[in-house]
Nucleic acid binder design. Structure first.
Length: 309
DNA sequence: TTCCGGCTAA
DNA sequence: TTAGCAGGAA
């Protein structure tokens, strides 16, 4: 397996060396933990939204044990509106495991990384490669698309098969470890900047040859995929409910949550229950709702300021 | 396969 | 209006 005719490895590596974006988590001296935080944040979330939050997190929780010392609620608040807040919860649990079982250091071994909460096939290899320079295929949606086009001549990757994709990319990597690691980063960068889902800027593409271009840029033949709607879904309701708790400082009465989704009480209660099940929120003994880990905290003293009454 | 946020470029 | 975004887990 290789890029269509010529092997575009040298061109791609050179392009990356000269054009890689100056992302904060690519700075020298960034640790495995900090890389891991960036990777989890970047799951389904654009770079521009992640960068400022990541800077705050690196300053606040520079090592796993620091985060393990904070409550889940504190982490959820700091997560803000990045979306998919279960990621934050997993990262917190991951920090606890790293502090307890890994001497506060993110492991470099892919199999060890895969045991960590919130770390899947992509993230494990991304950390092994970007932080520790391992020669492993790093396959995300960008790489999948680049390989589909440049190698297979298709606009989009078909059914994502992790096994096949890993083998595809593995075959593209140079033998030399350092060059292979750079190659993985370059493939991702190419998909993120040049060969994007919306448009392929072939004029600026460093690859000397592309199977998709050679084939005349054929459109997708795949059936239109089902769109995962958002408006009116439980996801939207969960977001609104969680936003109330994130914005406030302590436990709140259910009525405070009810008002953000009055149109469908059944759906609202279902969403609220799912947040409890996910461990994102908790219920206090007196029936109030709070962010996870904050229900036991003394709510703002209601009667202490009796002088004002 | 489906569910899980929130934002924005086109 | 919506497709798409450095995915993971059940």
């Amino acid at each position: 397996m290789s890029f269509s005719k010529g092997n575009g490895t040298e061109e791609l590596l050179e392009w990356y060396r000269d054009n890689a974006r100056d992302l904060p988590w690519r700075r020298p001296g960034v640790t495995g933990w900090q890389i891991l935080m960036s990777e989890v944040m970047l799951q389904q979330t654009p770079v521009s939204r992640v960068a400022p939050i990541w800077e705050q997190w690196v300053a606040r929780w520079p090592v796993p044990s620091a985060m393990a010392g904070s409550s889940q609620g504190e982490v959820l608040r700091a997560w803000g509106k990045l979306g998919y807040p279960r990621r934050a919860l997993r990262l917190h649990e991951c920090a606890r495991v790293l502090a307890a079982d890994f001497d506060d250091v993110v492991p470099s071994d892919v199999d060890a990384l895969l045991t960590l909460p919130g770390v899947g096939a992509y993230t494990a290899r991304a950390v092994a490669c970007f932080c520790y320079g391992a020669r492993v295929p790093v396959v995300d949606t960008n790489v999948r698309r680049v390989v589909a086009r440049a190698v297979h001549g298709l606009v989009d990757a078909g059914n994502p098969s992790t096994t096949r994709d890993l083998a595809d990319v593995e075959a593209l990597l140079p033998t030399d470890t350092a060059r292979a690691a750079t190659m993985s980063a370059a493939l991702m960068e190419l998909g993120a900047v040049i060969c994007t889902a919306r448009s392929a800027d072939c004029a600026r593409c460093p690859l000397p040859d592309c199977a998709w271009v050679d084939a005349g840029k054929p459109p997708s033949t795949a059936a239109p995929k089902k769109v995962q709607k958002f408006a009116g879904t439980d996801r939207q309701v969960r977001g609104k409910l969680l936003d109330v708790l994130r914005a406030g400082s302590g436990a709140v009465e259910k009525a405070r949550l009810d008002i953000v989704w009055p149109q469908d009480p059944a759906q609202r209660d279902r969403a609220l229950d799912s947040l409890l099940v996910d461990g994102l929120i908790e219920q206090t003994d007196d029936g109030l709702f709070a962010l996870a880990g904050e229900g036991a905290q003394p709510s703002p003293p209601r009667n202490s300021s009796t002088a004002t009454r």
